[in-house]
């Protein structure tokens, strides 16, 4: 079985090329990458950690779709590429420093913790959102980045939602104030992020819920306002 991997090295004559490799269909994509590195080409570069879908290291794209290499079987003709949107460092490794900074801008933490015991239902409200492994697949899939590089993005907004609705959070408004700019109103609600999330998280839905929280605090969707002023001219 043969697959193609996009190789990238900034110093090479043609920095980006697809190279074909023979792989073993009985193994995961990650195990195949490891074998290729150890036995075929030591320069093949990728990230890995837990090999069980919890550390988020090995996210990449297969035929354009975001995947965890450790949880994916290979198929004939697969095209393997690094995540999109993020800057590629080498081969399948991307730079994540700047995307992680959205966590600070968005305020993804408990701002004013209260000593309130959580019930089973309270915990369930944040259970799925707190499964996030920060693989950044959703970030890679989000079309907003084509036009707005400052967008807070799906994983940060989901995380903000998770702390906002945490019963122990005493400062709700502070969260809202930080996500109205380059945040909840910039999302096109396309749903791509939820489709690619390996943990079954649906950031789009959380963003919708954040929008209604924002309305409660007196914010309104600026995009709707602009529809108003331009009339129905499109």
């Amino acid at each position: 079985m043969v697959i193609e991997i996009r190789r990238y090295h900034r110093d090479q004559d043609s920095p980006s090329t697809f190279v074909q490799y023979k792989v073993d269909p009985e193994k995961t994509l990650l195990d195949n990458l490891i074998t290729l590195k150890e036995e075929v080409d030591p320069t093949l570069t990728f990230s890995r950690g837990c090999r069980s879908g919890v550390c988020g290291s090995c996210a990449l794209r297969v035929n354009g779709e975001e995947r965890l290499a450790c949880m994916t079987r290979v198929q004939e003709g697969d095209r393997v590429e690094p995540l999109s949107v993020l800057t590629v460092i080498r081969d399948l490794v991307v730079e994540r420093e700047s995307s992680l900074e959205t966590l600070d801008r968005g305020g993804a933490f408990l701002m004013d913790p209260q000593e309130i015991p959580l019930s089973e239902e309270d915990e369930r409200l944040i259970e799925r959102q707190s499964d996030c492994i920060l693989c950044e697949s959703c970030f890679s899939s989000c079309p907003v980045y084509e036009t707005n590089p400052h967008f807070l993005g799906p994983f940060t907004l989901t995380r903000v939602y998770r702390y906002l609705v945490d019963k122990r959070e005493g400062e709700k408004r502070g969260h809202i104030d930080r996500i109205v700019e380059n945040g909840i109103w910039d999302c096109t609600l396309c749903g791509r992020c939820g489709e690619v999330c390996p943990m079954g998280i649906d950031p789009k839905n959380d963003i919708l819920l954040l929008q209604s929280w924002a309305s409660r605090y007196g914010y309104s969707n600026p995009q709707m306002a602009s529809f108003g002023s331009y009339g129905l001219e499109f």
Partner: peptide, 14 residues
């Protein structure tokens, strides 16, 4: 950890 927001599973309110 509770004050940091750790989402431990619950049984009732505990």
């Amino acid at each position: 950890l509770e004050r940091l927001g750790m989402p431990f599973s619950r049984h009732g309110n505990r």
